[in-house]
């Protein structure tokens, strides 16, 4: 177990040293502040409260869950897999005492940690910005719940990128394909809206299922099982490909 912990800490350390983390932090703060200014300005000049009755953090989540958060997740996952293979730094990791399976799991866990941290960070700054727009949020519990549940579809998305990274050779191709697949899945969800339950991207706004006065637990359970199914499948295939991948 100690070698797994070492591998996990090693991955986290590598992520934290990346310049992309600083960029993520700065961009997130800027995007949140910009959204805040837009929301404030529209109310000031057009008299319309864009956030409605809901809170600014939930509004921000509905925007960022389709834009910044998947984008940063893609960057980090591609860095952890494709870049290391391209730069051959993966050799250093793999020559350590941890088995390939443990290295793979450590990497996936590190990606999950990054997503959770990113969501937590966005939630905190939106909460601070919302103090200036709508005052103190009244329903903090629902806001926290929304951010927690948003973790799951984004994590499945991360697993999909990891799979793409293990199929493709370069970082650019991995990135382009990830973006294409993301857009394609969202597009398919719109065109074949009756069958969109099959696409995990349609679960990107599933936290809204918790926000209403009527909560459809059956539906939430089904979506959760769908996400689990995707998770197990993608993890299994990616792990196999990672194991077979030649240095």
């Amino acid at each position: 177990m100690s070698d797994f912990r070492a591998a996990y800490i090693n991955e986290l350390y590598k992520i934290s040293k990346k310049k992309k983390i600083t960029v993520t932090i700065i961009l997130s703060v800027l995007a949140v502040i910009l959204t805040g200014i837009v929301v404030y300005a529209i109310n000031r000049f057009a008299g319309i409260r864009i956030t409605g009755y809901s809170e600014f953090p939930t509004l921000a989540l509905s925007v960022f869950s389709y834009t910044l958060i998947p984008l940063f997740t893609a960057f980090v996952c591609i860095d952890m897999f494709s870049s290391e293979f391209v730069e051959q730094t993966i050799k250093i990791t793999l020559t350590g005492p941890a088995s390939r399976f443990k290295v793979f799991t450590a990497k996936v866990l590190a990606a999950a940690t990054f997503i959770a941290a990113n969501l937590l960070f966005v939630m905190l700054i939106t909460l601070i910005v919302s103090l200036f727009i709508n005052g103190i949020p009244t329903d903090l519990f629902k806001i926290i719940l929304s951010y927690i549940f948003e973790f799951f579809p984004i994590f499945v998305f991360a697993l999909m990128i990891i799979l793409i990274c293990n199929i493709t050779k370069g970082t650019v191709s991995a990135f382009m394909i990830s973006i294409l697949v993301f857009l394609l899945l969202n597009g398919l969800g719109i065109v074949f809206s009756a069958y969109k339950s099959f696409l995990f991207t349609s679960a990107f706004d599933w936290y809204k299922l918790f926000l209403g006065s009527y909560i459809n637990f059956h539906k939430i359970f089904r979506v959760f099982v769908i996400l689990c199914g995707y998770g197990i499948m993608l993890f299994g295939i990616s792990n196999y490909l990672f194991d077979k991948k030649e240095l």
């Binding site: 099982v225 199914g229 299994g236 295939i237």
Partner: peptide
């Protein structure tokens, strides 16, 4: 074997995913 594990994960994942998604489509919103 590693191949079997991968295959099992894949089968279990796909089974979970499709049954639930089919149920979801059938029940409909």
């Amino acid at each position: 074997s590693k191949k079997m594990t991968a295959l099992c994960a894949c089968v279990v994942g796909v089974a979970l995913l499709t049954t639930s998604a089919f149920a979801d489509v059938l029940i409909g919103s």
